[in-house]
């Protein structure tokens, strides 16, 4: 056997080992969360708010955190979409010729994407202190929307960038303005991509802990207005695992399982939707 063959064989073995290592460790994550979380997962946990002494091992559940996380992630995703869609339209439709501006904006979003969410959280908290604002659902939504803004913007941008010039021209040729073209043609053409982007952002928002740590607060109640503090799932996990009581820690694992399941459902739905919509794309 010549040298090149030996080198190839060695690398092939290494590659297979790497692939197996990765697959096993990723499998272990789901496995261990399931193993630790399943025993204390109960209907009570997802249908009740914490009762008195919950964090000492007494009755109750984490409905407050589930509802809180969903509200927060929903709000943040919508807000981020409302801000990012016009920006993406601006660089891809209104200012299509100006590559330079578009590249600056893309770079900005890439950097914003890279900024750790703890920085957003701490920064937001500072501003809140400055203006005397208390922790609330609204504050959490605003800060988390900053975290997911680049995610949505770049994802939608990638989709719209791919739309051929011909489609723009066809619409302009019919006398449509840029706004009409954007809303009626481009947005429709990009809708599967936009939907996926929203779902990805939603998943990101629901899982983010560092940004809500100081901004959304934490309470045992389900909020009745956006100016109240709100509990979130990642923090619920974090706090419960931080207690010294095994029963409470076990519920922390169960909460982790709940969060994982929520994320899995979102990703699977996102994939199914994209697959379904792809059929209608031209």
């Amino acid at each position: 056997m010549d040298k090149r063959k030996i080198e190839e064989s060695i690398f092939k073995v290494l590659m297979i080992i790497s692939a197996i290592t990765i697959i096993v460790s990723l499998g272990l994550i789901l496995g261990s969360i399931l193993y630790k979380g399943l025993p204390s997962l109960s209907w009570e946990m997802i249908s009740q708010t914490p009762k008195g002494g919950y964090y000492l091992g007494k009755e109750g559940g984490i409905l407050n955190a589930i509802v809180g996380s969903v509200l927060l992630a929903f709000g943040a995703t919508i807000l981020a979409a409302i801000i990012s869609f016009p920006i993406v339209i601006f660089i891809n439709v209104y200012n299509r010729q100006n590559r330079w501006l578009a590249n600056i904006i893309r770079l900005t979003f890439d950097i914003l994407w890279g900024i750790p969410s703890i920085v957003y959280g701490a920064f937001g908290f500072t501003i809140m202190i400055f203006f005397g604002i208390k922790t609330s659902l609204l504050a959490g939504i605003v800060i988390v929307s900053l975290v997911v803004l680049p995610v949505i913007a770049r994802a939608i941008d990638e989709v719209i960038k791919m739309i051929p010039q011909g489609l723009f021209d066809a619409s302009y040729a019919l006398g449509a303005t840029r706004l009409e073209t954007s809303l009626k043609v481009i947005a429709r053409q990009a809708s599967p991509g936009i939907l996926t982007a929203l779902l990805i952002a939603f998943g990101r928002a629901i899982g983010d802990a560092a940004a809500v740590l100081f901004t959304a607060g934490y309470t045992d109640y389900i909020p009745t207005s956006i100016f109240q503090s709100v509990a979130t799932l990642p923090l619920a996990i974090f706090f419960q695992l931080g207690t010294p009581f095994p029963e409470v820690q076990a519920r922390g694992y169960a909460s982790a399982l709940i969060l994982t399941l929520v994320i899995l459902v979102i990703s699977i739905v996102a994939r199914l939707l994209t697959r379904k919509y792809k059929k209608f794309k031209i």
Partner: peptide, 24 residues
């Protein structure tokens, strides 16, 4: 088979990885 799984795992929140670290 593997690509979608990797894709889905990419969306798992970091807290979950922390929990896994604690367990294993």
């Amino acid at each position: 088979l593997i690509f979608p799984i990797i894709d889905i795992l990419a969306g798992i929140p970091s807290v979950i990885f922390g929990v896994w670290g604690l367990i294993l």
